[in-house]
Computed example of a mutant assay.
Amino acid sequence: MLFTDSVPADALGVVAAAVAMAMSALGYVLAKSWSAGAGVLASASRQLLGGGLLLPPFAVAASRWRASSSAARGPRPPRARVARMAVDGAPRHDSPPAGS
């Protein structure tokens, strides 16, 4: 199933998998070194704080990239109206039906 000639490996996918594996290994090493002698709550707090500090720059970069790529594509086609269900199960619409 792997490494057959039917489908070539995607270079971007291979790089993404390698980066994900390296990040996972780094996280394991850091979690082990930071939790030495610390309680469970302190260790979890450090990990959540670290993740919270590292995530916003990537989120901002991704949103700017998405905005620039969508601006280059042009305007979006109009979305179809989707009926959503309210908490009580009755259908509701974001806008009134056509013709009313």
Rank of each mutant, 00 (worst) to 15 (best):
A11E: 14
P56L: 02
R64M: 11
P8L: 00
L41E: 13
W34A: 14
G52Q: 06
G13M: 10
A22M: 05
G27I: 00
L54C: 08
V29P: 07
R84P: 02
A22H: 05
R66S: 15
S24F: 08
A11W: 02
P56H: 02
A72I: 01
A80I: 01
F58I: 12
A18D: 13
S33V: 12
S69H: 08
L53Y: 04
G99W: 05
R64E: 10
K32E: 10
A18K: 07
A17H: 06
V14S: 13
L55Q: 09
S95T: 14
A22P: 00
P91S: 04
R46T: 11
L49G: 14
A62D: 11
R46F: 12
M1A: 12
A61D: 08
D10C: 12
G27D: 05
M21C: 03
T4I: 06
G39P: 00
S33N: 08
M1K: 10
A11N: 07
W65A: 15
S100N: 12
A36K: 15
A67Q: 14
A16I: 00
Q47Y: 14
D88W: 04
L55A: 15
A31W: 08
A86F: 05
A72N: 02
A59R: 02
P56D: 03
G13H: 09
V15Q: 14
A80C: 01
V29D: 09
P78F: 07
W34P: 06
A9S: 10
A16V: 02
A83Y: 03
G89C: 04
R76L: 11
A86Q: 14
A42F: 04
A36N: 13
G74D: 06
R81N: 09
P57D: 03
A11Q: 13
A86P: 03
V60D: 01
A62F: 08
R66Y: 15
A98M: 10
W34G: 06
L41Y: 05
R73T: 02
M23I: 07
G99Y: 00
R92G: 06
V40F: 15
S68N: 12
P77E: 12
D5P: 01
D94Q: 01
A98P: 12
A71M: 05
A36C: 09
G50C: 12
S95E: 14
R92A: 12
R64K: 11
A25W: 06
V82Y: 07
P56F: 02
M85A: 15
A31Q: 08
M1I: 09
P56Y: 05
G74V: 03
P96D: 10
V19H: 06
G51N: 11
L30H: 02
R73P: 02
R81S: 12
A59C: 03
A11C: 03
R79I: 04
A17F: 03
R81G: 11
A42W: 05
R92F: 11
